[in-house]
Design a protein around this nucleic acid. Structure first.
Lengths: 362, 362
DNA sequence: CGCGTTCGAGAAAGCGCTTGCCGATCATCC
DNA sequence: GGATGATCGGCAAGCGCTTTCTCGAACGCG
């Protein structure tokens, strides 16, 4: 196509305009080094076969001189597999997901992997569609974070799609939702929430409300359950009408808190929002209603996203090492089946951090 | 390799274990539809050539039946170009960048493009390295957000790297830093900062400090300049020792404010942090020092990242439509040269939003 | 010194797809 | 009614790599 002369680099075309020079190919390198394509390939990617040191360094030199960089797509086609990790999140701007993404990206570039991103916008139809589209990419790994719902009609379709993908040699890792039967980075939602409940009780709280996300969201459900279970153990019941369900987002938290306020706040009440972004929304709702979070009503969240240390009052929450979760997800994907079976067993540890939003009650 | 029988789908291998079934290839589809490879290809990607409706629907049927999904790598190799957009940011967890990323991703999936992410961790050596690595991907577009510094030694290398890339047909878009001579999404930093200064003056402030990021960061410098320029126009000078330079991050803002506090705050002073994450850090520093932001000292930021509406006091800042900036970046990349020349001319508009962190001074 | 090995370079056959070209078919035109 | 296009399948040549296989050369051994 380029009609190279048999030796020497590509002759520049004669036409005017910005010369469009394609990057050097392996063939260019081989020719420049005076070796065959095969030898060039072997020298560059250190295959199982050894290459005479002389040739090897000739190739390396030529490659450097020509500024050669292997065409990843071509490699993928030839090898039959890519170096791509596909990360699917609900919402990139949500600190929960961006922290996880940061972990995945950090881990990926230690393994010369490329990560591609897609956002479901919290829509599971969309998630399914994205996973379907992903097939074309033939990624080595698919990491799914968030947005899965129990009993969702597209759940089954997703599952079979992912199974097909694994059958073709791909690896699926789910973050914090093991319902589908794939490798999972477990976050200990239930016991984290229990520990939080225990801390709040210890701080002197006796009346509770909870702002829960969409109830079918496994994560939300687990946190709610863990929380109430511990309270029950302490002999405290949280009234059904004090559990309000709203979107799993900042605005959801805001609205949920409004509902709670409208229904009437109790003295010395503590509100548990099942995640930090909701908790932050709740704080704002309180303030907009003229109340002082912390003093008038305590608020606690879950996740320990970076911003909660900068809101006022600083938020009591349950720490989840999100960046580490992202890294772990990728590592888990790369392990072979038996090792993965082991590591998938132990959920990542959470721990409660008490801050100003839940002052001790006398 | 798979040793298919000449007709019918791949025969299942006889060995045990989880059967590894590779995805259907175009050849499978063609065979199933009883047409040639060429016809199958043309029916599926509606090339310039038309194909008889009968054949076409046969192919489409077969493709659906076999759950065919084209191998993007193979397409890339055959076509000589990918559908990939490479996005490189400083830090994925920073809301500034994650908002931009969200915009890029949103725009990308309207164009069936794939976006890959990399993080420089605010290190320009690393940025250069990443861009170099990117070459292997042969992305259609490279979008660079943040982390470029003036007079950086690797600047020249980066530039030539990017030029090579454009010469090979790629498109580079820079976000908010046009120093390199590529397409740029301009953010009107200087005039946004000027407008902010004007608003603060109008609110009654007369003494100012600024928390600026690394001074070589073009964005930081422009904002600082715009701010002081407007103040000078109003006859106000900001003392050199009231301009403190620290990292362009939340922690940088925190430390910067500590420095300011140590040097002694003036009554009715307003502190301008050149971006919101720094401003948020500054708020926390104030509080940790026992001061009340807003009441004791006013604080303003820049960017209007989502969280600043949830901190207390809510932050006065300059709105930058970050998600839109991301979308624009990608659109700009896809336009042809002359159209791009036009659209690159107009910076995205910013506007100041006054919130509680800068109450009116009597 | 002859023979079996081993080593390692290179030719070539893919990988899954696109596309230029050829030629068969059929409608159209004077 | 024969020539002239236009239309559209299919063949096959790529795209830039990897990897199997072939085969010559170098080496070791008795």
């Amino acid at each position: 196509m380029t009609g190279n002369t048999p030796d020497g680099p590509t002759a520049p075309p004669l036409d005017a305009g910005p010369r469009r020079s394609s990057p050097a190919t392996l063939e260019d390198v081989a020719r420049a080094a005076g070796v065959s394509l095969a030898t060039a390939s072997r020298s560059l990617n250190g295959s199982s076969r050894t290459v005479n040191a002389d040739y090897r360094s000739k190739v390396l030199d030529a490659a450097a001189r020509l500024n050669y960089s292997p065409n990843l797509s071509a490699q993928a086609v030839a090898r039959g597999s890519t170096m791509t990790v596909a990360l699917v999140v609900a919402d990139i701007t949500d600190p929960y997901f961006s922290s996880i993404a940061a972990g995945v990206v950090a881990e990926a570039d230690q393994g010369r992997l490329i990560v591609t991103m897609a956002a479901t916008e919290r829509d599971s139809e969309r998630e399914l569609e994205i996973v379907r589209t992903l097939r074309g990419q033939r990624p080595k790994v698919i990491i799914l974070a968030g947005s899965r719902r129990e009993g969702d009609p597209s759940q089954a379709a997703l599952k079979s799609e992912l199974e097909d993908y694994e059958r073709a040699g791909g690896r699926v890792v789910l973050i914090s939702r093991n319902e589908l039967g794939f490798r999972t980075v477990q976050i200990d939602n239930a016991s984290g929430a229990s520990a939080l409940a225990a801390s709040l009780v210890e701080l002197g709280y006796r009346r509770f409300s909870v702002l829960t996300g969409n109830r079918e969201l496994k994560t939300a459900a687990d946190r709610l359950d863990g929380f109430t279970a511990e309270l029950e153990r302490a002999g405290i019941r949280v009234e059904a009408d004090r559990v309000v369900q709203s979107a799993f987002t900042r605005d959801g938290g805001y609205e949920g808190m409004q509902t709670l306020i409208a229904a009437g706040l109790q003295p010395n009440e503590a509100v548990f929002a099942v995640n930090d972004v909701m908790a932050v929304g709740a704080l704002s709702a309180l303030r907009d209603a003229g109340l002082t979070p912390g003093a008038d009503v305590a608020v606690a969240g879950f996740d320990d996203i970076p911003t909660v240390q900068d809101v006022w009052p600083t938020l009591t929450t349950v720490t989840v090492p999100l960046v580490e979760v992202g890294r772990t997800a990728l590592r888990l994907a790369l392990e072979d089946a038996d090792a993965a079976a082991v590591s998938a067993g132990s959920p990542v540890a959470t721990s409660v951090v008490v801050r100003d939003s839940t002052p001790r009650r006398a």
